[in-house]
Design a protein around this nucleic acid. Structure first.
Lengths: 251, 251
DNA sequence: GCAAAAGTGTTTTACTTACACCCATGG
DNA sequence: CCATGGGTGTAAGTAAAACACTTTTGC
């Protein structure tokens, strides 16, 4: 059965990525510099067109791989074949204001990715330059030209992604996506502190996360990479939903 | 600056609606019967193409008005001009599998609407027939031809919408969107019971909702429409986030 | 009076918070 | 030996679950 293309307006569909990581005690997002108009020279979120034969999630995973080398673990696909790097990828929201792209009507399906600190940003195919920037700098730019507001409506998309991450680590085990495969309770606590921008009591945090069933499983190893007394190493447990949830201190 | 249309594949973009209400103690969704192939004669979610000049939210609000007569209150627009019917509308998720529509590549931006019981379904422009159906019947069809599975991937979209509603009434005041402008604590409790499919203790529920700041404001009136002792009438308070949240009993 | 729904009080239990205190390592 | 981070114990406050009990209507 064929279909009359004049019956509906054609759209371009893209995926944009909010890729978050924790570096040096602060929450950072991946930004790429635009090499062409519009917004040439300005920072933007990585992204690109969805191809004819691929799913939205596949398109997001492909862009993530191209821009960062990260192979995401799709929560919708239980068995992940080769090796994902533990990065988490999920759909965030869709942005389709007419005029959000001056060239034409573009609908962007934004995705949220959470990654451990390890990878250095690598220049993808399209982007000549990429960097990890503290989200505060990107959302509240103040200073040199380099800190101009993000292109398009990307500041709003980034803000939505940050808010999603902040709320989701409350009731899910997603914070472990910011950690390497093995990590200490203190490292996990510093993730929460960076994402939420608060200080947490180390003693109560320790009791809470080790007492939440399925959150953490000890590997048996210890490390002293943070200094002080050796700390137990943990892997992420099977639980995805935390019960009871972590409580974010009042503002 | 013009743009080369051959550089990207063209998509059709639609909005599909998960419209939920509580009728006769059970959670129901709006379904329309398809008048043309594919899936002719099968039930589907209401929806339609996004127009050239409208935002995604506008498109969803337009479809909701056409299908139900409901004028939605958009949380993103603080001041709502004439009269919304108290219906809530928000973006749910976007579905873009190649092959989800056999005719062509369609990306659907699904929206979730919550409405009070009042309206009888009215046949919209496209749809010849519409009905409120218990979500259990739509998701787990068993019986006559009328209960065949929903068209396209709409069963999955509906399931996602129901799950969103179930979790969101835990920590937000959204349950009031299922109630008329003035309602009793018992009516609100029956909303929670229908959406969650559980029984709640009326005494503890009463204490909890009246004790949560900003959730309910008494209007001064009382009603006896439920039988028994007259109950105070309330309006929805200004709070959107509930603290502490309502707790859904374990399964 | 009786059924039915509204609303209050009380007890038990669970969890959070705040903070005192001890442990094990590197320098 | 001391600074640093890891980890345990404990008491006070807060909130949820369970349930006895009173209130106010319609019939």
């Amino acid at each position: 059965m064929s279909y009359d293309p004049s019956a509906f307006p054609p759209f371009a569909v893209t995926v944009d990525l909010v890729v978050l990581t924790v570096r040096r005690h602060s929450l950072c997002a991946l930004a790429v510099r635009r090499g062409e108009p519009p917004f040439q020279g300005r920072w933007a979120l990585p992204g690109g067109f969805v191809r004819e034969d691929e799913d939205l999630t596949q398109a997001a995973a492909r862009e993530l791989l191209e821009e960062t080398g990260l192979r995401a673990h799709d929560p919708a696909v239980p068995a992940e074949p080769p090796q994902d790097n533990g990065a988490h990828l999920e759909q965030l929201a869709t942005y389709g204001d007419p005029g959000r792209d001056p060239r034409m009507r573009v609908v962007s399906v934004a995705h949220l990715a959470l990654a451990p600190d390890l990878p250095a940003p690598r220049a993808g195919g399209d982007a000549g330059e990429a960097r990890w920037a503290p989200v505060e700098e990107l959302l509240h730019p103040s200073g040199p030209e380099q800190d101009a507001p993000l292109a398009f409506d990307h500041a709003g998309i980034l803000a939505d992604g940050v808010e999603r991450a902040r709320s989701k680590i409350e009731y899910s085990s997603l914070a472990t996506a910011f950690c390497p495969p093995e990590f200490t309770v203190g490292e996990l606590r510093r993730v929460y502190e960076a994402v939420w921008g608060v200080a947490l009591d180390p003693r109560n945090f320790h009791r809470k996360v080790t007492g939440t069933p399925g959150f953490l499983v000890p590997t048996g190893g210890t490390t002293t990479r943070q200094g002080g007394r050796p700390a137990q190493l943990f892997r992420a447990g099977g639980a995805t939903l935390l019960n009871p949830p972590m409580l974010r201190p009042e503002v």
